[in-house]
């Protein structure tokens, strides 16, 4: 059994609001410095930088997880994580078909750069990525699970795009098993105030849009990892994420 620190909410230069310095290799290198072992790339409504992130992460000794931060039709942010890169890319293609396509205004929102594993720009997304998709909050989890992933509400302690600020409660009926906090100091207050959080697996992640936003190691999982392989660690973490917490 070994301890693995995670950060499951990071934006790359593909997210319009993220800094262009958030290249796959910069993210992976800073994650190493921050003491993080497992990291998920979760750009707004896209996973197109995940293949590059996988290559970069391997170079820097980080176990990568392919992900996305989905914006639902209600403007709620949902973290979507996939055990396999291919599953994330299939989900990415599906989300593409459910996006509301508005041309990106680079001067206002910033560039949306797609990179390779060496941080070379190999493309860009022409349509604004962060706006609401046509996927509703009551369908989000099932849609992600259909592609083999895990989904849970992002930064529930934030006013902007948090599920509690938007819907007024943490709804039980959508079947989320986990909830993400941005600020770990708010966990106790929220769990007391919102009954439905009590039986949720609480995760903390940095939601970094800039290099300096990548936080030092916080959340962790103790994982049975013998005989060691990154595949095994990732598989075990997904098993934990899918396990229902006793209330």
């Amino acid at each position: 059994m070994n301890r693995y620190y995670y950060d499951f909410h990071i934006h790359s230069c593909l997210s319009p609001c993220a800094d262009n310095d958030m290249t796959p290799n910069n993210i992976a290198a800073v994650a190493t410095l921050a003491g993080v072992n497992v990291m998920a790339l979760t750009d707004h409504n896209t996973s197109k930088n995940c293949p590059a992130f996988f290559q970069a992460a391997k170079k820097h000794g980080i176990i990568p997880v392919a992900g996305m931060e989905l914006t639902t039709a209600e403007d709620i942010h949902v973290v979507c994580l996939f055990e396999e890169l291919e599953d994330a890319m299939a989900f990415d293609e599906y989300v593409d078909s459910r996006r509301i396509k508005i041309k990106n205004k680079v001067d206002v929102f910033g560039q949306q750069l797609i990179m390779d594993g060496e941080d070379n720009v190999i493309g860009q997304e022409d349509y604004f990525l962060s706006n609401a998709t046509q996927i509703t909050i009551d369908n989000a989890r099932q849609e992600v699970e259909r592609f083999g992933g895990v989904a849970y509400p992002a930064h529930v302690d934030r006013e902007a795009n948090g599920i509690i600020a938007t819907l007024g409660v943490f709804p039980q009926e959508y079947g989320f098993n986990c909830a993400e906090f941005y600020n770990e100091n708010k966990i106790e207050e929220y769990c007391e105030k919102y009954e439905n959080l009590k039986d949720k697996r609480i995760l903390v992640s940095s939601d970094a849009h800039f290099i300096w936003g990548i936080q030092d190691k916080r959340g962790y999982f103790d994982v049975e990892d013998e005989p060691y392989s990154s595949e095994k660690v990732r598989k075990e973490i997904f098993r934990i994420l899918r396990t229902v917490v006793d209330g």
Binding site: E74, I137, T166, L167, G168
Partner: peptide, 26 residues
């Protein structure tokens, strides 16, 4: 944003919204 509406809307108000989620009824 329902958290705001919960805190600010008063009894007897007309509440205008574009939110269609089930929680508007609650």
């Amino acid at each position: 944003l329902l958290s705001w509406v919960m805190g600010k809307a008063q009894s007897g108000n007309v509440w205008i919204t574009i939110m269609s989620n089930m929680n508007i009824i609650a």
